[in-house]
Structures are given as structure tokens and as C-alpha cells.
Design a protein around this nucleic acid. Structure first.
Length: 118
RNA sequence: CCAGAUUAUUGGCUGAUCGCGUGGUGCAAUAUACACGAGGAAAGUCCGGGCAGCAAAGGGAAGGGCAGUCGCUAACGGUGACCAGGGGCGACCCUAGGGAAAGUGCCACAGAAACGAAACCGCCAAACCUAGUUUGGCAAGGGUGAAACGAGCGGGGUAAGAGCCCGCAAUUUAUAGCGGUGACGCUAUAGAAUGGUAAACCCUGCCUGCUGCAAGGAGAUGGAUCCUUUAGGCCUAAAGCCCAAAGUAUCCCGCUAAGGAUCCACCGUAAAAACCGCUUGAGUCUGUGAGCAAUCGCAGACCUAGAUAGAUGAUCAGUCUCGACAGAACCCGGCUUAUAGAUAAUCUGGCAAU
RNA sequence: GCGCGGGUGUUGGAAUUGGUAGACAAGGUUGACUUAAAAUCAGCUGCCCAAAAGGCGUGCGGGUUCGAUUCCCGCCCCGCGCA
């Protein structure tokens, strides 16, 4: 789990990211991201719908795996909002290396596009 | 040993590093060290209660629910013991288990006829135009159907038959006696003739207001003016009475006296994911007493999630029997459903040995 | 979290005092018409079975009843509302 400052609080900032952010699609997870005012820490949310899997245990596992990967990786730029939307229950049983490659690919795509737009 | 029945318990463990939630420590903090951190079903939301709001939660009706008896419980549609009926060789299991003798409805097709009575084949008698027809009697036999008029067997009886009569047995009602708190059981006596269906309407008895923590509270306090409480009727007028209108979240009775708008001052930005409700509670564990049991009493010890985009994860090492179903969101008591395996206790049947 | 509504052939959708499940429409398919296709007309169309007979079929599993899409109970799935 991430620190409180690296998580979203309330609906307003989430709605802002959804409406103004850009999307990068992966094979199992898609990432929607937006920029924050400079100097503020990054924030992460993970969305796992009930349609992904019925069991709350499996959904919790997916969410915690993504959060844990974000905590351990040091490659995230400052001042960004990230929303991971999972749409497959394979994320729960995926190998650690595959999950690593999947998520880092998403982030590199996203950070490249951010540099272009800025 | 094999095959079962019932009840109960358990639901990987140990260490290290990084990380998260809450608490308290602290002047304070994003810091330091410490403590605690999902379940037996947390699930389904099927019942019941606490708690909260609807002014209060009063009476009646309607509506809804329940249904053997006696208990347990805060309460229940839950549960314990027992009774009756059914199933099993047995341990034991199953049952929406009040009333069809208050009334109404329904019983398709087939069948003569589906509950009020009737008669297709048939049996019997009489008459006649005598291979048969008509009229009358019968309801035992056949046929139809899930069900056929509704008490079986034997005897008598008759033209033929029939509870038409008698004996025995069954059902059921009432009374009496005995046993039981009771449902009920046993015995005796006296009657009765009753198709099924109440998870059809209904009757009887008992229970029941509605909404749900997204309830709700606090955060927003004080003053002035105006409007409605009138209109209408009784009365010369006032007072008073009647009636209408408002609230009581289905209706009636009954009850209630207040409600709204504008402006000024204060508050400070608009109403909360952020504060309270929120976790100490019909609490957990141990011992002991009462009771067949459910359960209750007494004593001691303990505090054991409380979040708000929502805390249990990652990596490494060791170990075993290699780990099922599965994630709290106001809280409890049940029910139902999911659950790899492991363990314990009591009991039944069979085989073998003694 | 709390509260509601629904589930019938391949699809939409009928069928209620409980009495032959699948009306009607779309789709599919066979035949006719055509050089060919479309349109049109006629037939078939839930599943098991070579066919008949028979059996099973209203989300699933039980129950009440002579008989259940319908009444009752327990599950599964889908959808909606409430700040």
C-alpha cells in the first residue's frame, strides 16, 4: 500500500483526471493519466470492476499487487495523476516478471507522451 | 477391521527486511520507537432485535406474518425436549403438524354422474308387437378417471340388492376413570356417517405502525416586521360554539398548537469521504452451580479492526500433513448457502477373535 | 451498504379463478418462381432418438396439488434506484 499522500482523496480530482487526462492501453490494464501542479507528489488509483471477477478477495489481490509494484518502482515522475483500470482477472495470477514488464511498458509509453505534449 | 449415524473442534507455522491502517506517547509534524490489526461463514440480505427519525406511538379497521405441546430467549419464521404421522434392520432422520363437522369456490380431459343428485353396461320384476322394446325397482358388480358418493370382513335378508339389519374390526365425536404441566396415551360407555383441496377465499388463536447508519445529529445563533390560524354559519355586536383547512408518511377515531416569508446583526461559504453516530457489547475466556437440554445464575480475568477511493501486501530463508471456501463498513441473535483436508467424542449394524 | 424489479425455443415477446406450453413477429432452413439473386408464395423449425413411439423441457433444486410458467421455500444470474 502507498502512503496517504500518494493516493486520491475525494471524487473531484478523479473526475478531473478522467475528463482531462490521456489514455494508454495495455493488454490487461489501461492507464489514464494527467499532470498536477509542479512540486506536488504523484497520486495513484487502481480500479477493479466487479465484472473483472466476482470474488472480493481476487479483486483485492489485483489492487494490492499494482499498488505494491508502484511502491517499489522509482521511475514515476513527480506531479502526475495515474488511474490504472484493470479489465482482466489474469492480473491476479500473472507472474511477477510479466506484471513488471506490463506496467513499466505502460509507464514508459505515458511518460514519452507527456514529454511530447509539454 | 468394514459400513454408517449424530455432535463438536480446527482451517499452516517460524524468523528477517521493506511497506500500510488505528491507538496512545509527543508543543507539533509527513519523524522515532511501541501495541493491536478480518471470518466461521465477514457472503446471501432470508428472519428477529438494539439504535435513530417520523410531535407522541394511543384505540379501531384494513393489510401482512405465524400455526402440534411445554419450555428457552431482548426477540424471532430461531432453538431444546417431548407428542402424533411417515422413512430406515438400527443408531437416527423427515414433516407449512390448527379448522374441510361455519360458509363460499374449484375438481380440466374422460365418464351416465365430480358432490346435488343421478344411472351407460348391468341385476331384478311386470307388460307387450317376445333374437327384443317399454315402464318400474336396485346401486352389489363392470367401465371412465388422480378421485365415483365413501366404514372393511362375515352372516342374515330380498324379486334383485344395499349399514337395510346383526356380529367383529377400523375411523371419528362426546362423557367418565387412570397417567402426564400439556400435546397426548390407555381403558370403559354412549353415539355418528364425514370425497379431495385452506402453499384457494376464508374461520379460529397469537404477533404486527413506517422507514432504515446513504437512519440521524452537530456544524446556523439572536431580534424585528408581515402573512396564515381565515372564510362560512349561530349572534345586534363581542366572547363563545359549530364546520372547513394543516400535522399525525394506508384509512377512521382521537390527539396537537403552531407554521411560513422578508429584513437586520452574528456566524462564515453551504453542507461532510473529512466531526459525531463508530465500536465496551444481549461482549470474550476460565472456573463453578441449576436444568434431560436449549439456556440461566455466580466468581475471576481480559479489551480483541473501526477505515472513508477505503488498511493484511512484497521479497528472502526454514519447516510440515504443502494449506479449502473466502475480505469487516452501525452492532448483535439466528437461518441458508460455499468449504481441501485434519482431529475428537458418543452410538448403530456386520465380520473376526476372546 | 440499504431497498426494489425481472429470468419462457436462436431473438423480441404471448399464455392467470392452476387444466394440451410456446400465440404473434423476426431469424434460420427446404421447395416453387428466376439464367442467377432479391422480393413473393408454400412447408418445416425447443432438446434426446436414424425414425416412430416415448421421455425431457418456462434460470437451478425441492415442496403443495390428480395436475405448476402460474402457489410456497431455498439458491444462481441480470438490471434499476437511494448521498
Amino acid at each position: 500500500m502507498l502512503k496517504r499522500s500518494h493516493r486520491f482523496h475525494g471524487y473531484g480530482s478523479l473526475r478531473r483526471t478522467y475528463s482531462h487526462g490521456q489514455t494508454v492501453r495495455g493488454s490487461l490494464i489501461s492507464l489514464r493519466y494527467g499532470s498536477r501542479p509542479a512540486g506536488k507528489p504523484y497520486r495513484v488509483a487502481v480500479v477493479v470492476s466487479r465484472k473483472v471477477h466476482k470474488s472480493a478477495v481476487v479483486r483485492n489481490r489485483i489492487r494490492r499487487r499494482v499498488y505494491e509494484w508502484m511502491r517499489q518502482s522509482e521511475t514515476v515522475p513527480l506531479a502526475t495523476d495515474l488511474i490504472f483500470t484493470v479489465f482482466s482477472d489474469q492480473v491476479a495470477t500473472l507472474g511477477a516478471e510479466q506484471l513488471n514488464s506490463l506496467l513499466s511498458e505502460l509507464l514508459t509509453k505515458a511518460s514519452l507522451q507527456v514529454k511530447k505534449s509539454v
